[in-house]
Design a protein around this nucleic acid. Sequence first.
DNA 1: AAAAAGAAACTCACTGATGAGTATACAAAG
DNA 2: CTTTGTATACTCATCAGTGAGTTTCTTTTT
Lengths: 190, 190
Amino acid sequence: MARNSQDTKLRILKAANRLFYSDGIRAVSVDAIAEKAGITKKTLYYHFKSKDDLVAEYLMSRDQPNLDAMRKWFDEVDGSVAEKVYAIFDGVVQSSKHPNWRGCGFLRTAGELANMPGHPAIKAGAAHKKRFEGWLAEVFVEHELKNSSGLARQVVLLLDGSFAVMMVHHDSAYIEEAGLAAKQLVEASS
Amino acid sequence: MARNSQDTKLRILKAANRLFYSDGIRAVSVDAIAEKAGITKKTLYYHFKSKDDLVAEYLMSRDQPNLDAMRKWFDEVDGSVAEKVYAIFDGVVQSSKHPNWRGCGFLRTAGELANMPGHPAIKAGAAHKKRFEGWLAEVFVEHELKNSSGLARQVVLLLDGSFAVMMVHHDSAYIEEAGLAAKQLVEASS
DNA sequence: AAAAAGAAACTCACTGATGAGTATACAAAG
DNA sequence: CTTTGTATACTCATCAGTGAGTTTCTTTTT
């Protein structure tokens, strides 16, 4: 057991990540996270002020990785912007096949905490979604599309719609359909 | 206190509705619902087998009213199908201004119970969403649109996307943007 | 270079509150 | 006088958070 602060904190965050994403916020106890991280609850509270604080840090830790995944799917495909946008949805389709996939952790957390509008975790989710939308809008500007910011929003709506519908139907055909709609909208602005 | 089984059950369901929709499933205790309904917990358990059962009945009780609201918004507006579809999004925009509005209870519940895929509440949510999608597809067939079933899915994705994004941003401009996208997609299929 | 002091990282065992669900008893209505 | 509906008062598990003390690392003193 390394008596290393940074290392321990990361292990806690990793355990929180897995459990919160898999089971939801209120369904996961601080005890469960501590046990999964192989430490005691008191140690967890040494590194994090409260459960709410841990939830917020969990989401903040997902911001960059999620964004990177989206960018990667977009960049890796050759073709028109419309086709590259479709590739994002295709990437989500592939991810959704993994047995541990549970949709978008940001949205699920925001939904669970809908009665606490100012919760730092919701702010973290909002920041993440804004960053993604901003990146998309930028890309659309670079490719000289009409109405780039409105179009970015529409793509975001379709993507988050996919996540939402998947929570209910568990049928990736919906993500594909969203991808087709996004492609069509992008083409119409080209 | 009317010693009327049906009446009591309805009062419990109404209390559950308010609390579950407002605060989420796991955040609301059976005690809280019983108190709000003005009865004891034991009486609640006389009418409902378990909390899970109550959650499922809560969602089932929302199926018809929600559907009716959508249909009403669609029917009330004169104009093209595209404009009538836009009216649904406009109806959601208006609803979203109410201080008690918390998005779509079906989606929020499904998200919270994402780790229990077979939960009856999720099945109730799936059934509701399928009914709405089916109704839309029918309408599109009646209006002789191309690709009516795919189009219905795209509209559903945009609508549920609006609900999802609203949980994070609380900005009804997103719902309007989704409405515009839906209108555009419907027009392209006309 | 060794030892002492202090700070950082950690554990064990606990608190008080609240969770879902129940055993038992009693009241009303047919 | 039995069935249906309701209440009081409970069980036992689990929750977020803490009090008090222990171990390891770092820095200062001699």
